[in-house]
């Protein structure tokens, strides 16, 4: 029994190509059925995410299967499929790496594991997951769990939004009842606010020099708008201040924050300065209860997390290698039932 993997990903195909091959959940059962009808293929699983479309299949003849897959995918997308492919044991290793987040655009991201699980469930429901595929995917889930718990591959946040969320959680704990003030309606501050909203923040106030822009953004993210002249008053109630104005001079200075901090009863204020030139005077970071991070420090934290993850890749690979060996032993024992690893 052979295991074959064929597909395209963010390294081999541009987004414009990947989106042509993307498989919607409702299209998956039909595609799985087509794939299984390819000569020599006994089972198939289709993994389709924004970064990859991959087919994992079990069968006797990988060459014929690959030709069949290429034909099916090309006819669906309407262009020639630039497929890469792996045979056993490289296909096994590849799946283990994908499930562990080692093959992702952001190394160590964990969303992919959920996507692999969904792909496996869809194949199970469609009846295209054979015994070998069941064993392979169950093993892949164990590998991903082991890589995640035994190494630092998922360590730390890797984007500005996720860094801001982690810092906020380390200041306040629960983010549910926090109030966020957006000073300026830039795209990056909007994304940061959305990251915070995804972790439970409900109360967002937008203040911008152009009130209409503030109002539009507030409507878009489900917040409230306030006039720019009143931002100081809004800051007194805010827990997180995200600033991204085009002001040539710092707006958030110790003199402005002193009255704000006096009436807070020890409640901290997290200032996220995403503006260039900076909106916040670095001196406010020395004030008690004020935590300031600017675009550089957020990027630095994200980069350091990525460096830590990169350092862990080698450990992950050796962990995966031992699991590939274990799986191959099981596969061998299928061919020769007398043989015991």
């Amino acid at each position: 029994m052979n295991i074959l993997c064929a597909g395209i990903n963010h390294r081999t195909a541009r987004l414009a190509v990947r989106e042509r091959f993307a498989v919607a959940p409702e299209e998956t059962p039909a595609l799985l059925s087509d794939l299984r009808s390819v000569e020599g293929v006994s089972g198939a699983v289709v993994l389709s995410t924004c970064n990859r479309v991959e087919i994992y299949a079990s069968g006797l003849c990988p060459v014929r299967a690959l030709d069949g897959f290429r034909e099916i995918l090309s006819s669906r997308a309407g262009l020639k499929a630039p497929l890469y492919h792996h045979d056993t044991p490289r296909a096994v290793r590849h799946l283990f790496r994908v499930a562990s987040g080692l093959d992702s655009m952001v190394i160590g991201e964990t969303e992919i594991l959920g996507q692999v699980k969904k792909a496996y469930s869809a194949a199970s429901e469609a009846g295209t997951a054979t015994r070998t595929m069941h064993k392979l995917f169950q093993h892949a889930f164990r590998v991903a769990k082991s890589v995640r718990t035994e190494t630092q591959i998922t360590s730390g946040p890797t984007s500005i939004g996720s860094v801001a969320v982690e810092l906020a959680e380390k200041i306040f704990g629960d983010l549910g009842n926090l109030r966020v003030l957006l000073l300026g309606a830039g795209e990056i501050s909007e994304r940061t606010a959305r990251s915070l909203q995804s972790r439970g923040v409900r109360n967002v106030v937008v203040s911008n020099r152009t009130y209409e822009r503030a109002s539009a953004l507030a409507a878009e993210i489900g917040g409230m708008a306030t006039h720019f002249d009143h931002w100081g008053k809004a800051a007194a109630d805010a827990d997180i201040l995200i600033s991204s104005t085009n002001s040539p001079e710092p707006l958030v200075i110790p003199e402005n924050l002193l009255p704000v901090m006096k009436g807070r009863g020890g409640r901290p204020l997290f200032v996220i300065d995403l503006a260039v030139p900076r909106d916040a005077d670095p001196a406010i970071n020395d004030m008690e209860g004020v935590f300031l991070h600017d675009i550089d420090s957020l990027e630095q934290i994200a980069t350091e997390s990525l460096v830590i993850r990169q350092r862990e890749v080698e450990r992950c690979e050796s962990l995966i290698e031992s699991h590939v060996g274990g799986f191959m032993n099981w596969l061998q024992s299928l061919h020769n039932p007398e043989w015991r690893p």
């Binding site: 959680e169 200041i171 935590f291």
Partner: peptide
């Protein structure tokens, strides 16, 4: 310790394990 970590631009590994300053 945690306050210092949060105010620094390069928090060390212990930052991830310490509880929030508010707690």
């Amino acid at each position: 310790v945690q306050e210092r970590q949060l105010k620094s631009r390069r928090p060390s590994a212990i930052f991830h394990d310490l509880p929030p300053v508010a707690t």
